[in-house]
Design a protein around this nucleic acid. Structure first.
Lengths: 187, 187
DNA sequence: AGCTTGTAGCTAACGATATTAGCCAACTTT
DNA sequence: AAAGTTGGCTAATATCGTTAGCTACAAGCT
């Protein structure tokens, strides 16, 4: 039996892709094993179990999101930066619903946990957006939380098909960006 | 073997309470059976399986949330109504994280699905808040979605311990209410 | 009262899934 | 080439969700 040449990173990447394909809830060890061409128990040589796998997928997702947002923001400031960041974030969630779902509800075990590191990177990307506004020191944390809540809430609701009625979702999102921008400019 | 005198509603209520206690992810049929004093398979006489149970819990949660928000809003308008609604909603989510989690990702099967009915009631409660503001017809849907995203996002992030750093979470929430109020008044 | 009938609850059993134990062969290192 | 490390395998176990089929309780009818 020839070796498959797996590595933890390979397994995690495949897991993330599979989660996007079939939904995080349907991500099973058997399915993942099949995807990487190996029998189920072999996965445990690379990953510590389902919880560990989930954490690793979440870390990857947060890192990718941070990259996407950071890249999108480059060269922009103020409203343009806000719009770019929000759009990039939402695009990521829409394209990768499975791995994004893995990030919901996971808690970093400590400040050195890759999860915490990547999470901080994503936060930093949004913080840089806020630098384009004249925001009082005392408002900074609140504003950041507002942005996160807005983006996360919208993305989560959309991913869950939470917006059922009429109006166009893209239009609502643009409206929401304009709303946040106006509010941030008049603090 | 004396009968336990169960009814679907009893089972669902116990399931919701149990979800709040142990977390939705740890809500198992065996645990629920034990809680209501019955063997596992007996639950299936009242509920159609785990998915059905989840849907029913979600419907209950949405109904309760709608009641709470509707009650809180009574007698208030404008900013006061907004603050009351937002606080009531968040309080509900914080006190009932399990049943609220059950509402995320469930899709009503049709317009008569209790899930859809209760969901609409909650939406209506928030809509009534918006009536206190001078909002253009074309903005109404977007504003409603903004409100939902904000509330859901904040509640979800808090429930997941997503706010790790310094600033006080309650303070942030009040800041967020003020932010939304200002934005809605200057549409 | 006795009989009938619907059904709540039970035991037994099955299938899926995560996980562990223990073996063996394939690479790596010297 | 020998030794050691380790990735992959088969086999086995535990936990869940779920179904099948039996039994006995309770309500209604004669």
């Amino acid at each position: 039996m020839p070796r498959a040449g797996l590595a933890p990173a390979t397994v995690v990447a495949a897991g993330a892709a599979l989660a996007d394909d079939v939904g995080l809830a349907n991500l099973t060890m058997g399915l993942l094993a099949e995807r990487v061409g190996v029998r189920t128990p072999s996965l445990y040589k690379h990953v510590d179990g389902q919880e560990d796998l989930n954490r690793r997928i979440a870390a990857v997702a947060l890192g990718e999101a941070a990259d996407a947002v950071g890249r999108a923001v480059q060269g922009y400031a103020g409203r343009d930066a806000l719009a770019a960041a929000a759009r990039a974030f939402r695009a990521f969630v829409v394209e990768h619903p499975g791995r994004y779902a893995a990030t919901i509800g996971v808690e970093p075990s400590g400040p050195d946990d890759p999860l915490a590191v990547e999470s901080r990177r994503l936060l930093d990307a949004f913080t840089s957006v806020l630098r384009g506004y004249r925001i009082d020191e005392s408002d900074a944390d609140h504003a950041l939380r507002m942005l996160r809540s807005l983006c996360h809430g919208f993305a989560a609701l959309q991913a869950a098909n939470g917006f059922q009625w009429s109006a166009d979702v893209d239009e609502s999102f643009e409206w929401l960006i304009a709303f946040a921008d106006r509010g941030l400019r008049t603090l």
